[in-house]
């Protein structure tokens, strides 16, 4: 479908498929991190506290944490590719110069790379969903929609990561990325409900894209359709759009001198 809608962008995506056909092991490793968190925190902490109040009922802690880990898996997949890999290509490989000497333009290039980084997020999320199903952590059949829902997460983090990467000068700048990502992962309503935060702090956390993504996924996993999910989608889409536009503009500055 994408191949016929945006063939040039898709050809950039295809290039990555070629590259990673031989490096699939690298992709697989990214799946284990959320799994370890699920076992360590979901079942470990869950074993101590048992249940947690969610949506007016008490739910098993592991079932509460799992959707958030699924959302962060999608985030990690997209971020990893749109930062490290794109920085490498911008800085060292001359691949982009070659690509831009063909009909492919900077917009196609950005879309193609984002499609790819998103695929990675979707793969992690899907694999994690299967684990959740196997462990009986899914309360509603709506959970089967999560691989689609994480596309919004993948695009927003992929595009934001891409945009930020175009400003990075050296590998050292990646330290800043982790200064942002670690608290984002820990504090975005991942391990406890967002209501725990007092006043203004809560609203800051509500604005975290991962909080929105987690809300979207968690609502699906518990079969709790609500209007706020539309806000989640709109918010993540807006970040995707702004990040994409900025990344394209920066690619122009860097590559089309």
């Amino acid at each position: 479908m994408i191949a016929s809608l945006a063939p040039r962008a898709f050809s950039v995506f295809e290039r990555n498929v070629f590259v990673y056909r031989r490096q699939w092991l690298i992709i697989v490793t990214g799946f284990f991190e959320p799994l370890f968190f699920l076992l360590g925190i979901g079942y470990g902490v869950g074993g101590v506290i048992g249940t947690i109040p969610y949506g007016g009922a008490d739910v098993p802690y592991a079932a509460f944490v799992a959707p958030a880990l699924l959302a962060s898996a999608a985030m990690n997949g997209a971020i990893f590719d749109s930062t490290f890999n794109i920085f490498y290509k911008l800085k060292y490989g001359k691949v982009y110069d070659a690509i831009l000497s063909t009909p492919v333009g900077v917009g196609d290039l950005a879309v193609g790379e984002l499609l790819w980084s998103n695929l990675r997020g979707v793969i992690y999320a899907t694999a994690f969903l299967i684990v959740m199903l196997a462990l009986g952590l899914v309360a509603s059949p709506l959970a089967l929609l999560t691989p689609l829902a994480v596309i919004f997460i993948g695009f927003s983090f992929g595009a934001a990561g891409f945009a930020i990467t175009t400003h990075m000068r050296s590998w050292k700048d990646f330290d800043f990325l982790f200064i942002i990502l670690t608290p984002l992962f820990l504090f975005s309503a991942t391990f406890y409900p967002v209501e725990i935060y007092p006043g203004a702090l809560r609203w800051i956390v509500e604005l975290s894209p991962l909080t929105r993504g987690t809300h979207l996924v968690r609502s699906l996993c518990f079969g709790d359709l609500n209007w706020l999910m539309l806000v989640d989608i709109a918010y993540l889409s807006a970040i995707s759009f702004i990040g994409y536009r900025h990344a394209v503009r920066r690619l122009g500055v860097l590559l089309l001198k």
Partner: peptide, 27 residues
């Protein structure tokens, strides 16, 4: 067809794949 002054071959691909991928860029 453009051949750059500096090498711009795709080091993450094989010789043949460099051609295959490029053909796709041209649709």
């Amino acid at each position: 067809g453009v051949v750059h002054q500096q090498e711009t071959l795709d080091m993450e691909l094989t010789v043949l794949e460099n051609l295959l991928v490029f053909g796709r860029f041209f649709g």
